[in-house]
Design a binder for these strands. Structure first.
Length: 427
RNA sequence: GGAGAGGUGCCGGAGUGGUCGAACGGGGCGGUCUCGAAAACCGCUGACCUUUCACGAGGUCCAAGGGUUCGAAUCCCUUCCUCUCCGCCA
């Protein structure tokens, strides 16, 4: 959510942002409804001021024992009450429309975001590691995994349908090893506090981080309850401090969380239909930082680096992309995507998305801090990113560590987490 | 799921229809005193919205949403949440 004074005083700035994002939003409607709302509100508040004064007088008259005079005043006050009630209904209707509309305006973009229409215009800023060269024809994970007996899509389809997977034996252990490995690095070396949150959240939480009201179709909703399966741990973790004012001395807060994530993938029919890349349910270790306005930008660089460390320790080649204006998500001001090399697909694929949301989520979720030097509470800034998407990391390990005979070498850093296992061979 | 008790400001906790945005205590901030500190004493100390160039003015908020009333933290209804006991369950 953007500050109201911005669209009132500088709507052109928002129009430029929308053009740059190659998107549209009901800004004109918002401006019009906001104008109407404020006009009515002014009138309404005048009436209420009169009622307050009048009621006070009636109270005093009763106190002085002037019953008749008081009763006489009641009649006109009653009419005023009806008038207020009517005007109140219209005013709150307009106010609600303003609130609904402003929730559909995306965040302003950081000045460093390159111009561009879509993902083809994203800019590569660095690369790490060299893609492995195989002297045999390498396989995609959706062939490797089932052949090893550690990955089964058919059984998953029987249980739940398309876009689910069953991991078995060393496959399940590898997933679990990755989760523990990532959490250990982030908590022990990068200073994050691990939290384990609910996997179901209410609509207020989803509005706080920006998934609602605009992206309801991407979510799984629990019938008969105000509860949704989380699409990312970003939602519960960022909302931990919703409606709070933290002490500046506690800032920055760094949280990491392992959760399953659930996505309806409503708009992605036909995309990534094979394999583990795009699932309705997947595991992710998420990094979240709550910072002051001045440190958010550094925090994004730092947090992206924290995610990169995981890939470096696993010796998986990757590159970092700055998303262009047309590809930055609704709530984000700036985003780095980390893309890991997948030999089976002969290309880099997103494995982490790290964003600075400036005060956009904080304004929605009322995340504030009290400055150490005193004064009014200020909005926090939020920064988060995957550290990493676990399923896709498992894919990257399988494909990058495969051998000619179809076995997969276990990366050294994961062996302690897998009872010393060095090689995954067909079951 | 059943029975009961509750949800008030940064915290504790009063307040059952009229100067209540809310007593009192604690905390925090400032001051007096002191070489300094403690203690004591004094003062200040919520958020949001509209309006105004500004000073200021007005409105809203006592879990949330409705209702009664000239007037609601206080009365009524609904929902949510917390706690205790029972049941059930991992």
């Amino acid at each position: 959510m953007l500050p109201r004074e911005l669209f009132r005083k500088d709507p052109e700035r928002i129009r430029r942002m929308l053009r740059s994002r190659h998107t549209e939003a009901p800004l004109d409607r918002l401006l019009e409804v906001d104008r109407q709302w404020r006009d009515l509100l002014t009138t309404l508040e005048e009436l209420k001021a009169r009622r307050n004064a009048g009621s006070k007088e009636i109270g005093l008259l009763f106190k002085d024992g002037k019953r008749d005079e008081a009763e006489a005043r009641k009649a006109s006050m009653s009419r005023l009450g009806d008038e207020i009630k009517d005007l109140e209904e219209r005013t709150s209707g307009l106010e609600q429309e303003v609130e609904t509309l402003e929730l559909t305006i995306p965040n302003l973009l950081d000045a460093e975001v390159p111009e561009g229409a879509n993902e083809d215009d994203n800019r590569e800023i660095r690369r790490w590691g060299d893609p492995p060269s195989f002297d045999f024809s390498c396989q995609a994970h959706w062939d490797l995994g089932p052949a090893l007996g550690i990955l089964d899509f058919e059984q998953a389809a029987k249980l739940a349908g398309a876009r689910f997977a069953v991991l078995r034996g060393p496959g399940a252990a590898l997933e679990r090893a990755l989760i523990s490995f990532m959490l250990d690095i982030h908590t022990r070396e990068h200073g994050y506090t691990e939290v384990l949150t609910p996997y179901l959240v209410n609509s207020t939480s989803l509005q706080g981080t920006g998934q609602l009201p605009k992206f309801a179709d991407d979510l799984f909703h629990i019938d008969g309850h105000d509860l949704y399966l989380i699409p990312t741990a970003e939602v519960p973790v960022t909302n931990l401090h919703r409606d709070e004012s933290l002490d500046e001395s506690a800032i920055p807060l760094r949280y990491c969380a392992f959760t399953p994530c659930f996505r309806a993938e409503a708009g992605s029919h036909g995309r990534d239909v094979r394999g583990l890349i795009r699932q309705h349910q997947f595991h992710k270790v998420e990094l979240v930082q709550l910072t002051t306005p001045w440190t958010a930008s550094d925090a994004l660089e730092q947090l992206t680096g924290h995610a990169e460390v995981i890939l470096q320790r696993l010796d998986l080649p990757y590159r970092v992309m700055t998303l262009c204006s047309g590809d930055v998500g609704f709530s984000a001001a700036k985003t780095y995507d980390i893309e890991v090399w997948l030999p089976g697909q002969d290309r880099y694929r997103e494995i982490s998305s790290c964003s600075n949301f400036s005060d956009f989520q904080a304004r929605r979720a009322h995340l504030r801090y009290r400055p150490a030097e005193g004064g009014k509470a200020r909005l926090l800034h939020t920064v988060n990113g995957s550290g990493l998407a676990v399923g896709r990391t498992l894919v990257a390990v399988l494909e990058n560590y495969q051998q000619q005979d179809g076995s997969v070498v276990v990366p050294e850093v994961l062996r302690p987490y897998m009872g010393g296992m060095e090689l995954i061979e067909p079951i």
